[in-house]
């Protein structure tokens, strides 16, 4: 029993350290690299406005566009690594923000509903729940063959329950031999267990896959 607890503590420590490092890189990209690129863009736009030569103006416009694309990519990369809304606004707004990015990346529409007042969750727990949802959605994009996902948040005084249903092709876990996929599913369950929650996965061929995540709030 003690050995299990020690192993769980080690896993938690590794995950927390990784999350801290990811957050640092994300912030550095957003506040450092992103801000510097923005300054370069402003400078280029100033030079463009004060140049009369059409050829040079056009060249500077293209350079500005390239910088804009790079800023956009840096911002997306930073948000992908660590969503700032998670710390500032909470789990639900962070999830909604991620879903916007998810739909424009994979073309899959995610319908999100929330019942009950959103409760404050410690950052360590909310990042774990966010990562499990993120893994579930990425798996859907990879394997489910679907255009529509439904996500439900139910907030009660004692518990948060999130269900994700993909209406996709489904799978039979016992016949699944993609080791990466199985490890991913096991990691989702383990990550929830480490914060005292649970993750249940059920799937039916032709009907889709459902994931239920629950987290005690007291």
């Amino acid at each position: 029993m003690d050995l299990l607890k020690t192993k769980q503590q080690i896993s938690s420590y590794i995950i927390d350290s990784q999350e801290e490092e990811i957050k640092r890189i994300s912030l550095e990209l957003h506040e450092g690299v992103g801000q510097n690129l923005y300054s370069i863009l402003t400078g280029l736009q100033f030079v463009e406005s004060s140049t009369a030569e059409p050829h040079m103006k056009n060249y500077l416009r293209e350079m500005s566009l390239l910088i804009k694309k790079t800023i956009q990519e840096i911002r997306l990369l930073s948000v992908e690594l660590h969503p700032p809304a998670l710390t500032t606004l909470g789990l639900l707004p962070a999830m909604k923000s991620y879903i916007n990015c998810y739909t424009s990346t994979f073309g899959i529409i995610v319908e999100i509903e929330s019942e009950g007042p959103e409760r404050l969750i410690p950052e360590k727990n909310s990042i774990a729940v966010f990562r499990v949802c993120q893994e579930a959605l990425v798996n859907i994009a990879k394997y489910a063959d679907t255009s529509h996902v439904k996500m439900n948040f139910i907030w009660t005084e004692n518990e948060l329950t999130i269900t994700i249903h993909d209406f996709g092709k489904g799978f039979q876990p016992e016949e699944q031999n993609d080791s990466m996929r199985l490890s991913g599913l096991a990691a989702m369950k383990e990550r929830m267990l480490l914060i005292g929650g649970q993750c249940r996965i059920s799937s039916k061929l032709g009907e889709g896959t459902s994931i239920e995540i629950s987290l005690p709030l007291k």
């Binding site: 694309k69 790079t70 956009q72 990519e73 997306l76 739909t103 424009s104 990346t105 994979f106 073309g107 899959i108 529409i109 255009s147």
Partner: peptide, 21 residues
């Protein structure tokens, strides 16, 4: 399907993104 209509190509990523960059 119509997923392609909602996909925005990421600069430098994937087939289209790499070709554009």
């Amino acid at each position: 399907n119509d997923k392609y209509k909602r996909i925005t190509v990421r600069f430098g990523k994937g087939v289209a993104g790499k070709i554009i960059s």
